[in-house]
Amino acid sequence: MLKFLSKVGAYAKDAVQAAKYIGQGMGVTFDHMRRRPITVQYPYEKLIPSERFRGRIHFEFDKCISCEVCVRVCPINLPVVDYKFNSEYKKKELKSYSIDFGVCIFCGNCVEYCPTNALSMTEEYDLSTYDRHELNFDSVALGRLPTKVTEDPLVTPIRELAYLPKGAMEGHQVDHRQRRAGQRPEELMAESKEGTEA
């Protein structure tokens, strides 16, 4: 009988504990109901892509020397460099240049290795078309600049974590024009100078 009772007691204790922990879990979810939603309401709000963001590639026709380095470092040899050797000037003349963004994986190798910096990466990421061939950009399309998120009147720009001021964790709560974390090197220098003078 005693054994049975102690068993019942243990059972009851178990049940109470279970209820307690389930309640604790529900406390966590309940607490989240009063926190601000963290979702970004695309397309009404947009994150500002980072400075190093690797979006659609920008190409400057005049800078290119048709060296084809970009083709060689590309994982799939994607850029098409069409040139003709001009025997008069002993130079390659670029006729056309194109990158098919339906195939490009935006790895940035071409940008990194281009000797003349003819290539650069923009912040444009929403490349969507009804026909994938429209994504094959020629040198004219490659030369266009995208609209900035911060200059679009229809969009509320929101910053990513790395560009928020120190201590702020959520882009919604901070104006996107506020200064981001970290000091400029010049300021640090001035500070350390003051330190040594004082």
Partner: peptide, 13 residues
């Protein structure tokens, strides 16, 4: 709505 609130989302809006 409740699941959205519990998950810090907005839900149907």
């Amino acid at each position: 709505k409740i699941s959205a609130a519990a998950q810090q989302r907005i839900g149907p809006e």
